Simulated assay, not measured.
Amino acid sequence: MTFVLGLTGSIGMGKSATAAIFRRLGVPVHDADAAVHDLYRGRAAPLIEKAFSGTVADGIVDRPKLGAAVLGDPQRMKALEAIVHPLVREEEEAFLRRVSALASVAVLDIPLLLETGGEVRCDAVLVVTAPASVQRERVMARPGMTEEKFKAILLKQMPDADKRARAHFVLDTSRGFAAAEAQARSILACLAGRPGRVGRQGHG
């Protein structure tokens, strides 16, 4: 049985770098953001165009146009989520079926895991964290980032302290790559031999 470890963390906390560490250690990782990106170039595009006319060009969702169509409108955002979320879940379940016979641990990299109740699909939750000053420095260094954008993103995310309180494991990314990898290895050692929720027949 494959143990499903949910990986999450607020913006700038080092989630993507941590996912890369797990991949380097041989752990299969499903990236929810990458799945959305692929869906926007594939199965989701015609469904989104039908719901939000003019947001797809040449079979690919135009993210700025889609953003303009849904941002600030909760009903439209819910309509978009109703299209995209089930498709992402299908991709996630297909991933878990593929790796169930191959891996003792699989990672689901989901940015808003706790905010959306996604922890119920995991055997344990790993939250990546860093001091607020480090987080701010990382985020503000991103191209096009402004103080207003940063504040708006934080408002959508559960506070870091609350995430850490709900985590089974916490990984501090502020001490460098080697320290983060050591923590990841320690977590995998803790999980060794633990029964998970995914068997050869798939998720469940």
Rank of each mutant, 00 (worst) to 15 (best):
V120D: 10
L39Q: 00
T8G: 04
V36M: 00
A45F: 05
V127F: 11
D58Q: 15
S104T: 13
A69P: 01
Q75L: 15
A20E: 15
G144C: 08
F22L: 04
L87D: 00
R89M: 09
A17S: 15
A35Y: 11
I11Q: 10
R138G: 13
S174D: 09
D172R: 08
G193C: 04
P46V: 04
G6L: 06
T2P: 01
A19L: 05
G6S: 04
P195F: 11
M77L: 15
S174A: 13
K15S: 05
E49F: 12
I153G: 07
L113R: 02
A180I: 10
R197S: 15
Q183I: 01
A69I: 00
G14M: 10
V127L: 09
V134E: 14
G204Q: 06
A124Y: 02
E92N: 04
A152N: 06
V84R: 00
L155H: 15
A141G: 14
E91C: 04
G204E: 10
F177D: 14
G176N: 12
S16F: 01
A69G: 06
L154Q: 14
H85L: 02
K156F: 01
P64W: 06
L113I: 07
I110N: 05
D38L: 14
G196V: 13
H37I: 01
A152H: 05
D38Q: 13
P74C: 02
D62H: 10
Q135H: 11
L7N: 02
L155C: 12
L71I: 06
M1V: 13
R136G: 09
G72R: 03
K15D: 10
T18N: 04
L47R: 08
A152S: 12
A124H: 11
A152D: 06
V120W: 00
G144M: 09
L47E: 07
V120S: 12
R97Y: 11
R142I: 15
I110Y: 05
T2K: 14
F95Y: 07
E49S: 05
V127K: 06
Q75E: 15
D33V: 13
L96Q: 03
A17E: 14
D58A: 14
V56C: 09
G9T: 12
L87T: 03
V84P: 09
A51I: 01
G26D: 05
V134I: 10
A79H: 04
D109E: 05
S186M: 04
D31W: 08
A178W: 14
A167R: 02
M13Q: 13
R166N: 09
V107Y: 10
A20F: 12
D62V: 03
E93C: 05
R24Y: 02
K149N: 02
E93N: 07
M158I: 10
G6I: 03
L112D: 04
R23Q: 15
A178T: 11
A35E: 07
L171D: 13
A34N: 01
L154H: 07
K151D: 13
A44E: 00
V120T: 14
F177P: 15
D73M: 04
T55N: 08
